[in-house]
Each structure stands twice: as C-alpha cells, then as structure tokens.
Design a protein around this nucleic acid. Structure first.
Lengths: 247, 247
DNA sequence: GGTAATTTGTTCGTATGTATG
DNA sequence: CCATACATACGAACAAATTAC
C-alpha cells in the first residue's frame, strides 16, 4: 500500500469531447459570435469521429445556446452571441419541477429589483436616469398593450444602471417567467386602469429617490411597488412572506 | 386581401418534437424521477423516427439534466431528480462569455445572502437555527479543508430557512462559481487562520441577530461579513461597488 | 464465475429538402 | 434554372458495456 492514489475513471463519450473543445473555444473567445464552425463533414475529419457524433455534439451546443445550424447553409454552424436563453430555459424548468410558487418568484424579483435600484441610486448616469423617465412617460401614454413593454424598459434601465450584469440577466429572466405565469390574469383585472396608474406613480417615486441618490428609500419604494402590483395574484397565506421584505 | 391571417411557419426539427414531448411528460409529473424511458429502439417506434433522431433528442434532454442514459442498461434512460446542474452550467457560461467580474459575483452573493438572512430572521424554525449553530461549531473545530464545507452548510441552512427555493438554488450556484474562481487564492492567503477566525465571529453575530429576530441587522452583518472575507480578492477599483451595499 | 441476450455508443452509406451562387 | 454543398433524416451494421440466467 501507499502507492499512487488513482482516481476513478469516468468514461467520457466521444460527443462530449467534441462539445468540450468547441465550448472551450467559444468561452475562451477564440471563436467569436458571428464566426462559423466548419461543416459537419469537415468536423468529422478534424475530430476523427463520425457524422452522428458530430451532430449529437452540435445538438448539445445548440441546446446551450452557443451555436445554431440551418439546413443548406453553405457555411457551417454559426457561433451565437450570448443570450440568457439557456439560463431562461433551466430556470423555467426549475420553476416547474421544483414547483416554485408565484410568491417565491415575486419575492425573488423584489430582492433583485430593490437591490438594483439601491445600486442605481449611487451609480446611475444622467443618460440612464433619462431612460428611466422616458420609460415611465411611455407607460403613461401607452395603451394596455404597450404598458408592459414600457414597464420592461424601465426595469431594464434600472438593472443596467446597477452595473451588475448578473443582476440584469436574472431580473430579466425571472420577470419573463412571472409575466408568463399571470399575463392573462393581469390583462383581465377589472381595475386594470387603476393598477396601471398606481404603478406609474410608484415608478415616479422610485425615480425621484434615485435622482436624489437615496438608495435605501428607492429600494423600499421599489419593493412596495412590486408588492402592490402583484400581491393580488398571490394566495393570501403566502403574502406574509412578501411583506417580510417590506420591513 | 382580407383572407385568413396566416402565421409564419417555424420548421421544427424532428428531434425537437421528441424533446418537447418527453420534457412535457417530466415537467408535468407524468414521468417521475427514477422512472425509465423506453429503450432507444422502442422510442423510435413510438415517435416514428429513426434511431439517430431519438439519440439527438436524448442528448438534448441529458444536457438539460432531465435524463441520463448508460450503455448496456436494459432499462431505458433514467429520469433524474431535479438538480440545478443545468442552471449551474448556463450561469458558468454566462460568467465566462459575458465576462462577469468577481466583484459582480460577490455582489450578487451579498444581495442574495443578506436577503435570505433577512427572511430567515422572521421565518426560521428552532431546528434551522440549531443547524446554523452546528455549522459554525464545525467551522471552529475544522481544519482548513473542512472549513469550507462547514461554511457551505451554514449558508445553505440560511437559504433553506428563507423559505424561498429560488434563493436557495441561486445562492448555491453562485457560491460554487465564486469558490471555484478563487479557491487557490483563498487557500494560499498568508493570514488564512486570522480570516477564518474573523469569519467565524461574523457568522456568530449573524446567528445572534437571526435568533433575536432582527432581520435588518442580520442582513447588514451578513453583507459586512461577505465583504470582509472577499474584498481582498476584488480589484481595488471595483470594491466601491461592493461597499455601496454596506450603506 | 461465465455466457448469452439486450442495450447504448459509434460508424458508415444513402436519400431528401434547402440555401447559395 | 442549374449545379453545388449543406443539414436533415433514415437504416444497417459493429463494438463495447451491462444485466440476467
């Protein structure tokens, strides 16, 4: 005994080796968005594997949102710019199989959004502040269809002003999941118009606090705004967990 | 003109149709973890597609962490219990291709962890409080190798006590990414022992605040603890963004 | 323990629809 | 319109691995 410490061998499939190499090339930047991979027939030569193996690897890379291939394209598969599509997909799956409640999703939004607004109050530029104001202006002038889009633009401006790309991406992903869950309920709300106007007032208060540089106040207002907008769709028993964030 | 409004047709690949059906079965619960899919040869009959198509679909489902297949397994592919592996993968990819800085990752941890602790101060059970104390006790008695594991256990107990599964998963994913980024630096820190003791004191203060039910205090202490532990590894220019969360 | 049967991993060949020039 | 090259999809075959008898 006392010999070399061997490690268990994990048999790694051929297609995985292909995936690893292409993934590494993309994530390290040696393959940039817009560039093309070689054709499948060429890749099978470069990797010394069969066509099927190349294709299985491409399917995995496509599922991860890294490349896209189209039939007939004389160039090979296209390297895609990063999109949070894969993150969105896995978080949606999480929401379904882990049975995330609407309350948990809204609570998560309250946390991220208020944190973004706290940071934005410190770090925002004048341009970003103008974007927020313009978004709210569009919310006021928009019909019920355009309201949602302007609201997204507002929250996205906040998230960008936070200076944290991870907050920005997660905010966007979770927001779209929440909206998809209750879009019809929101559209069918009897007091839709009143809710929209209340939301606009809340947004203006948040902007005022951000402009004044009062991060903690802006964060509190942001949480309150989100609670008032979504609480009606959350079962009564779970609202207490949301209110715990309102102090 | 004035005829029916046709919609653009998105050609959908055969393997995608297979993926959709299996995915729907799993996410809706009609296929549960531990259950088996039919063998590839049977699936090609059920879906009326070739074996290659079945395999491409299985590769995608495997990449999403929903199933696993092993060579020779007389049962088909196994439906897996949910793990955040896919979420972890896509967030790691995000970190690399979007060039997330360590500062952004630590900032995100500060936001999530302090929110979890804020909620935990309200919602924790006595058992969860005991788990936190036990974890800190293990941190004190552990060597430098066991310290990290006990620290993970502490933060996981906090996250679970928050009552929000999304916070719990994201905390875990981002933590592991951060640790992977700077594990060697932490291990090589000259004042490692002092940092560990300081961290233990901070954790005890957080527990005391949670026990007292003072969420805002616990949250502040949590942010301070994380800042003190990680700031040394963050470039000086980016530390200001972290301090913005310390009020 | 050894052998047979079945399954996945992988390869190869072929046909078809599609995009480019 | 045609020729070329491509991705999509199918089917047959062999190797490697696992289970069950």
């Amino acid at each position: 005994m006392g010999g070399p410490r061997f490690e268990p061998v994990r048999t790694v499939r051929a297609y995985e080796r292909v995936v690893e190499q292409v993934e590494e090339a993309i994530e390290s930047g040696s393959l940039s968005p817009g560039e093309r991979l070689a054709s499948e027939r060429e890749l099978m030569v470069q990797f010394s594997v069969s066509r099927s193996t190349v294709r299985e690897a491409l399917r995995v890379l496509q599922a991860r949102g890294l490349v896209r291939s189209r039939p007939g394209d004389p160039n090979g598969a296209e390297v895609l710019p990063f999109t949070p599509a894969a993150l969105h997909k896995s978080m949606t799956t999480l929401a379904r199989v882990a049975e995330l409640s609407l309350a948990e999703l809204v609570q998560f939004r309250m946390v991220l959004d208020s944190s973004a607004v706290l940071l934005a109050a410190r770090l925002r530029t004048e341009e970003q502040l103008a974007e927020m104001s313009q978004a709210v202006a569009r919310m006021r002038e928009a019909d019920e269809a355009g309201f949602g889009a302007a609201d997204v633009a507002f929250h996205d401006a906040i998230a960008r002003a936070s200076g944290n790309k991870l907050i920005q991406v997660c905010t966007d992903v979770v927001r779209s999941i929440v909206v998809k869950l209750i879009a019809e309920k929101i559209a069918a709300a009897p007091d839709r118009r009143a809710l929209m106007e209340q939301s606009i007032r809340h947004h203006e208060e948040v902007i005022a606090a951000v402009r004044a540089g009062d991060g903690p106040l802006a964060a509190r207002l942001s949480r309150k705004a989100m609670y008032d907008y979504y609480a009606a769709y959350v079962p009564v028993a779970e609202r207490a967990a949301l209110r715990a964030l309102l102090e």
